Simulated assay, not measured.
Amino acid sequence: MPHPSTLGVLLAGGLARRMGGGDKPLKTLGGVTLLDRAVARLTPQCDGLIVNANGDPARFAALGLPVVADTVPGFAGPLAGIVAALEWMERERPDMAWIVSIPTDSPFLPGDLVARLHQAREAAGTPLATARSGDQTHPVVGLWPVALLADLRRALVEEDLRKIDRWTARHGVAEAIWPTEPYDPFFNANSPDDLGEAEAVLARFPEA
């Protein structure tokens, strides 16, 4: 069943301390940047992509995608990126009502991510959906409706709320579940060691 039009949001605003600083999305895996892998994985599933990143947007110019900075100051975390993306969509793409957010350090994202998140949301009757693999939830990988933008911005600005699952629990969030074998589709490459582990996965499973 076709899912509603959805804007893909590549969250690239982290500080990458464990990776030694710099832009973690521009680190390479199998000769391809993590950001390019994320774009390739999400493009067929979405009706447009944007990058959420702070600082000079020119470093992502080669992608040819809009780069949207946080509108809430102080590096307020992933929720600030989601607010900025929802605001951008409300202004620039009023034909759409949903965004899907992904971290750009997850190189093995599933090809049915968006469809299965929408299915989980519809089956549960909730306005939000997130991914889970095994016994671990991934709050940054989720569906967000523009209808909840005002509430999310209020929580972030007035309540200084930073933890994603504290806010999603208020509204109801469904889970779409994936297995962790033969590899975890939501594996995070947070450090040089993680990148080495991801290279090993890619060597064993070139289609990953």
Results as ranks from 00 to 15, higher is better:
Leu117Ala: 11
Gln119Glu: 09
Met1Val: 13
Glu158Lys: 08
Pro2Tyr: 08
Arg132Asp: 04
Ala169Cys: 09
Glu122Arg: 11
Asp135Arg: 14
Pro110Lys: 05
Ala131Cys: 09
Gly22Arg: 08
Leu156Thr: 11
Ala129His: 09
Phe186Ile: 02
Arg162Glu: 04
Ala147Gln: 14
Thr126Ser: 14
Leu161Trp: 07
Gly134Asp: 12
Leu202Glu: 08
Arg166Thr: 07
Val83Ser: 08
His118Glu: 14
Leu15Gly: 15
Arg153Met: 03
Gln45Leu: 03
Val51Trp: 10
Arg18Pro: 00
Gly14Val: 00
Gly142Gln: 08
Gly13Thr: 05
Glu92Tyr: 05
Asp193Ser: 09
Leu42Glu: 12
Asp105Arg: 04
Asp105Cys: 06
Leu195Gln: 01
Arg204Ser: 10
Ala155Ile: 01
Gly22Thr: 05
Pro182Glu: 01
Val51Arg: 03
Glu197Asn: 07
Trp98His: 14
Leu161Ala: 09
Leu35Ile: 08
Leu152Val: 06
Arg18Asp: 07
Gly30Pro: 07
Glu158Asn: 12
Ala174Lys: 11
Asp112Gly: 06
Ala84Val: 07
Pro107Asp: 14
Glu175Val: 00
Ala176Arg: 08
Asp160Arg: 13
Asp95Ser: 09
Leu63Ile: 00
Leu152Ser: 08
Trp98Asp: 15
Pro107Gly: 12
Ala203Cys: 01
Pro110Tyr: 06
Gly74Trp: 03
Leu42Lys: 01
Ala123Trp: 05
Trp167Leu: 04
Lys27Met: 03
Leu86Cys: 11
Ala40Glu: 15
Thr137Ala: 12
Ala124Arg: 11
Ala174Glu: 06
Gly172Tyr: 13
Asp47Asn: 14
Leu86Asp: 08
Arg154Met: 06
Asn190Glu: 15
